[in-house]
């Protein structure tokens, strides 16, 4: 087994472990911290997949901006009462049934198709230059639309956060 394979297994196990801890943890702040760890190990997997730009974006945007926003809101709301609540048995049973079903569908479809194992001579690497070239030529219109979407989201957030809506 080569080094990238070992690294894949290490980071995959870490991601699954932290993902499990997000779900079972009672304290929202601890959940948020484990989500940061999951996102970090996913960024490491992106590096293993030659997606260097996306790994950097994942750390900057997700682990940086988005999670800071999450922790900020958790601190803003008083969630002390949340920890004393019981977890509903019905929710857990329903969750397990639906998760088992969807996992069975996923794994079965993967095992049946057996997608190609060897990445025959990889030429495309997701570094900043090649992704940037695609973004500013072939994907120019979606890129501009996304910038408008970000503006709309910004205006919406400012409106929503005002004390009273007139």
């Amino acid at each position: 087994m080569s080094l990238p394979d070992i690294l894949f297994y290490v980071f995959a196990a870490f991601a699954v472990l932290c993902g499990l801890l997000i779900v079972v943890n009672r304290n929202p702040v601890t959940s948020a911290m484990f989500l940061v760890l999951t996102i970090g190990s996913l960024a490491a997997l992106f590096v293993l997949l030659n997606a260097f730009f996306l790994a950097a974006i994942q750390v900057l945007v997700y682990a940086g901006a988005v999670m800071v926003l999450f922790v900020f809101v958790i601190m803003l709301l008083d969630l002390k009462a949340e920890q004393r609540r019981k977890i509903k048995v019905f929710g857990v049973v329903g969750g397990l049934v639906s998760v088992g079903t969807i996992l069975a569908i996923f794994v079965r479809s993967v095992l049946q198709t057996r997608p190609g194992a060897e990445p025959a001579a990889v030429t495309a690497t997701g570094d900043t230059m090649s992704l940037g070239k695609m973004l500013f030529t072939q994907y120019l219109l979606p890129f501009e639309i996304v910038s408008v979407l970000l503006l709309v989201a910004m205006v919406g957030v400012i409106l929503l956060s005002k004390k009273e809506l007139k």
Binding site: V23, I102, L103
Partner: peptide, 14 residues
């Protein structure tokens, strides 16, 4: 798929 299933379980159970 495993990560997606974990997230779905959290959405339904929490």
């Amino acid at each position: 798929a495993i990560l997606f299933a974990l997230g779905l379980f959290g959405v339904i159970a929490r």
